[in-house]
């Protein structure tokens, strides 16, 4: 099984990944061979088997619903990592474009 070029481009788009033209064929092949391998699971009848959902086994780990401010130094260091900022705010390109009222 090999994924089509369109399938690879579609999932790359979904995952927000730019792919280099020369890599696309290799991804078609690699993803295809991995997906063929994992097909193996279809051999098993799992109709009556529940999904595994809770790795920790703990339930309802509540804490008080109070605002806990971040340590101001940690906050400063986190903000210092921003690619672009205005004051303490993260500056990004417009999220919505071609907006019509």
């Amino acid at each position: 099984m090999k994924l089509t070029r369109e399938e690879v481009l579609k999932i790359a788009k979904l995952a927000r990944l730019h792919l280099e033209e020369e890599d696309i064929a290799k991804y078609q092949e690699d993803l295809g061979s991995i997906l063929s391998y994992v097909e193996k699971l279809q051999e098993l009848n799992t109709d009556d088997v529940p999904e595994f959902q809770h790795a920790a086994g703990s339930v309802n780990m509540f804490r008080e619903d109070v605002v806990e401010n971040c340590d101001p130094d940690v906050r400063r260091r986190a903000i210092d990592n921003f690619a672009s900022r205005e004051g303490d705010l993260l500056k990004v390109q417009a999220v919505f474009e071609n907006r019509t009222e």
Binding site: L41, T46, F52
Partner: peptide
């Protein structure tokens, strides 16, 4: 979903 079931097994 299939993989989660196999994880249970």
């Amino acid at each position: 979903r299939k993989a989660l079931k196999v994880r249970t097994l």
